[in-house]
């Protein structure tokens, strides 16, 4: 594809472009629905059925159910939307950051503090 040739490669970094947006549409749409408390409750009641309702493909479903952020990103998820899914399970962005970098949350936090020095 033409546009992919011009893409900048930055290690550990995905730019949420048209390709990602198309790939992740159903997953992100499901996460968007979590703006409502009612939908969050429905998700918790039957997660798989809820994923099916939003038409997630197998890759997306598996990633969402396992809460693996890197897998969700690979399936087209966008951080701002995924945050709403994480929120259901009380995960904050530092939990999410630690998970993606394979660090403990404490180590991740320490890394951030270090960056400010």
């Amino acid at each position: 594809m033409n546009t992919s040739k011009q893409k900048r490669v930055i290690p550990g970094t995905t730019m949420f472009d048209g390709e990602q947006a198309r790939k992740g549409y159903a997953l992100n749409k499901m996460c968007f629905s979590f703006n409502s408390a009612e939908n969050r409750a429905e998700y918790l009641e039957d997660k798989e059925a809820y994923c099916d309702k939003y038409g997630l493909n197998e890759q997306q479903k598996k990633a969402a159910l396992s809460l693996q952020v890197l897998d969700m990103l690979a399936a087209g998820g966008n951080a701002y939307y995924l945050a709403k899914l994480g929120g259901i399970f009380g995960l904050d962005m530092q939990d999410v950051g630690a998970q993606q970098t394979g660090m403990t949350k404490e180590a991740f936090k320490a890394k951030l503090v270090e960056a400010g020095k």
Partner: peptide
Amino acid sequence: QLDGQRAGFI
């Protein structure tokens, strides 16, 4: 940066 292996970048 919130996403990817580079999360936490400052």
